[in-house]
Amino acid sequence: MSKESRLVHIVDDVPELDVHGESVDGLDRSLTLVLVLDGFLDAGSAAARAAQHLVDLSPDSRVVATFDVDELHDYRARRPAMSFVRDHYEGYDAPRLVVRLLTDTGGTPYLLLHGPEPDNRWEAFARAVRRVVERFGVTRVVSLGSVPMAVPHTRPIAITPHANRSALLTAESPWRGELRIPSSAQALLEVRLGEWGHDALGYVAHIPHYLAQLEYPRASTALLEHLEIGGHLTVDLSGLRAEAEDREVEIARYLSSNEEVSAVVAALEQQYDAFERAEESGSSLLAQDQPLPTGEEIGQQFEQFLAGLDGPDADGEEDRA
């Protein structure tokens, strides 16, 4: 048995997927695998919330592959939660990295690989995912992620598309030239899948960095809108859009009562708009001739903001009850 075989257990009998990846009776039996790894590439929990929304829409989904998390997870760096009830421990939330079989709103089956990003053995993880891709006849892998950026929440959610073949791109990248960035398991997997002849693409949402620690469903909605295009799927976004609207109301309520925070957001709006006016000259999403509030300034201004939205005494809590 190979090391990759020990790293992932794949269900033997999945008749719903037996014909996918082939052309039968002239019909395209394409199959999408959506990839969401929690951790590094998930500012605002945008990708994780998007994945949970997909799972919620398929209550009868089942797990068709399971990864050996003990081989991949650093428990001391990311300690799972558990409960202590008076005099004993219980309710251990064991991390799980699984592949689920879901169906979109049109009844089309697809796969979702989600769970914590592996902390180690990335190459072995990539080879294990390759086994899943080839076993089920996956024709495209679409990854979702999000990063914090110095952008205001009052402007459209920017998305960076990427792919291991240019023909797979569904939108133009906002970046010019080469950027050196920290790697991720998702990024490495896209590279390796391309080397093995498998299509992989993805989308990264730009999250206002002052909201990066807050669940931001508006960005989750934007990611799923792009998934519909790149993954050839249809997704009911009505519930997620309502959730996003509620969060925007909370943010607006706070800004209306805090002039200092509003000033910081206004500065970001000026930068964003200046960049839009001179887009052809920049390799950054920030205008070059506008002062940028420091990270410390942003953090100080929004410390109360984040606590107010997520705390038990948040403004508007009674209104939502």
Score class of each variant (00 low, 15 high):
214 L>P: 00
214 L>Y: 12
215 E>H: 10
216 Y>G: 11
216 Y>C: 08
216 Y>E: 02
217 P>C: 03
217 P>K: 08
218 R>Y: 10
218 R>C: 06
219 A>C: 11
219 A>I: 15
220 S>A: 07
220 S>L: 11
221 T>D: 06
221 T>G: 08
221 T>N: 04
221 T>L: 15
222 A>N: 09
224 L>N: 04
225 E>V: 05
225 E>M: 09
225 E>S: 08
225 E>Y: 03
225 E>F: 05
226 H>I: 00
228 E>D: 10
228 E>M: 06
230 G>K: 03
230 G>P: 07
230 G>Q: 08
230 G>T: 08
231 G>S: 02
231 G>V: 05
231 G>F: 01
232 H>S: 13
232 H>W: 00
232 H>G: 09
234 T>P: 01
235 V>L: 10
236 D>C: 04
236 D>H: 01
237 L>C: 11
238 S>T: 14
239 G>Y: 06
239 G>V: 02
241 R>I: 05
242 A>W: 01
242 A>C: 06
242 A>M: 05
243 E>T: 09
243 E>C: 01
243 E>W: 06
244 A>N: 01
244 A>D: 09
245 E>G: 07
245 E>D: 10
246 D>H: 14
246 D>L: 15
246 D>V: 02
247 R>Q: 11
247 R>G: 06
248 E>R: 12
248 E>P: 15
248 E>H: 15
248 E>M: 14
249 V>W: 04
249 V>I: 14
250 E>C: 13
251 I>L: 11
252 A>V: 06
253 R>S: 14
254 Y>R: 08
254 Y>H: 12
255 L>C: 07
255 L>F: 10
257 S>F: 09
257 S>W: 00
257 S>M: 15
258 N>P: 11
258 N>I: 05
258 N>R: 10
260 E>A: 04
